[in-house]
Amino acid sequence: MAMESAESIRSIFVTGLRDAHALENQALSIMNRQIERLENYPDMAARLRSHVEETNGQISRLEQILTSLDESHSAIKDLGASLMGNMAALTHSVAGDEILKNSFANFAFENFEVASYRSLINMAKRGGFDSAVPLLEASLQEEKAMAAWVEQHLDAVTERYLTLASSGAQASH
């Protein structure tokens, strides 16, 4: 097995950081669209608003790491991911069970972000980018907490949806 070069690890790490930055921009687009439409799920709206603030902090941490490496985020990746996030949110908005689809997607998305940060932490450690590790770990903990929150509230969201739908009320959002 060939030994990996420090430059190779750095390059992979920078690409991962740029991807994570774009991913967080996508998350903002998705959450902001969802918040606009949430009427009957105040707990979900409040948690999403809180996570928007966390996500803005995650973006700042990623930019801090990139700057420390004399790199910047990719505007093209950010724009593409943001557009994809808006399209995903719009796709769910026409579904009769929008809140359920959003909850499923949010759970998957949060766990994807958890995996991304775990991988970035591994890269940072392997590449000797020690100052990045605490910043990435802070973001990882926020993503784990959000994934756990979505999982813990899925049954309550489903029950509320069923109750509203059964009574003829607007249940989808």
Rank of each mutant, 00 (worst) to 15 (best):
A2F: 13
M3N: 15
M3L: 15
E4L: 15
E4Q: 13
E4I: 13
A6D: 11
S8I: 06
I9D: 02
I9C: 02
I12C: 03
F13L: 01
F13S: 01
T15M: 10
T15V: 08
T15Q: 14
T15L: 14
L17P: 02
R18V: 04
D19C: 01
A20H: 05
A20G: 03
H21C: 03
A22L: 05
L23D: 09
E24K: 08
N25C: 02
N25P: 00
Q26V: 00
A27I: 02
A27G: 08
L28M: 08
I30A: 01
M31K: 07
R37W: 09
R37A: 08
L38P: 01
E39Y: 11
N40E: 13
N40G: 14
P42S: 11
D43R: 14
R47I: 06
R47L: 04
R47N: 09
L48T: 02
R49C: 11
S50N: 14
H51N: 12
V52F: 03
V52E: 07
E53F: 01
E54K: 10
E54I: 02
T55I: 02
G57C: 02
S60E: 15
L62E: 06
E63M: 12
E63V: 07
L66P: 09
S68I: 01
L69P: 04
L69K: 06
L69A: 04
E71R: 11
S72E: 15
S74Q: 03
A75P: 00
I76P: 00
L79M: 11
G80P: 06
A81Q: 13
A81L: 12
S82C: 03
L83M: 13
M84Y: 14
N86W: 12
A88S: 12
A88Y: 08
A88K: 14
H92W: 07
H92Q: 08
V94C: 06
A95Y: 10
G96C: 04
E98T: 13
I99V: 14
L100V: 08
N102P: 00
A105Q: 07
A105R: 04
A105D: 13
N106D: 15
N106Q: 15
F107N: 13
F107E: 14
F107C: 10
F107A: 15
A108T: 13
N111I: 03
F112H: 08
F112E: 02
F112R: 05
F112M: 07
S116T: 14
S116G: 07
Y117F: 04
L120R: 04
I121V: 09
M123G: 00
A124Q: 05
G128C: 07
F129R: 05
F129S: 05
L135R: 06
L136W: 02
L136R: 02
E137H: 07
E137A: 12
A138Y: 10
A138E: 15
A138C: 07
Q141L: 06
Q141W: 00
K144M: 12
M146S: 05
A148I: 06
A148F: 09
A148D: 15
W149G: 06
L154P: 00
D155I: 08
A156K: 10
E159N: 08
E159Q: 12
E159G: 00
E159K: 12
Y161M: 02
Y161E: 03
Y161L: 01
L162A: 12
A165H: 11
G168R: 05
A171F: 06
A171D: 06
S172H: 07
H173L: 11
H173R: 15
H173Q: 14
H173M: 13
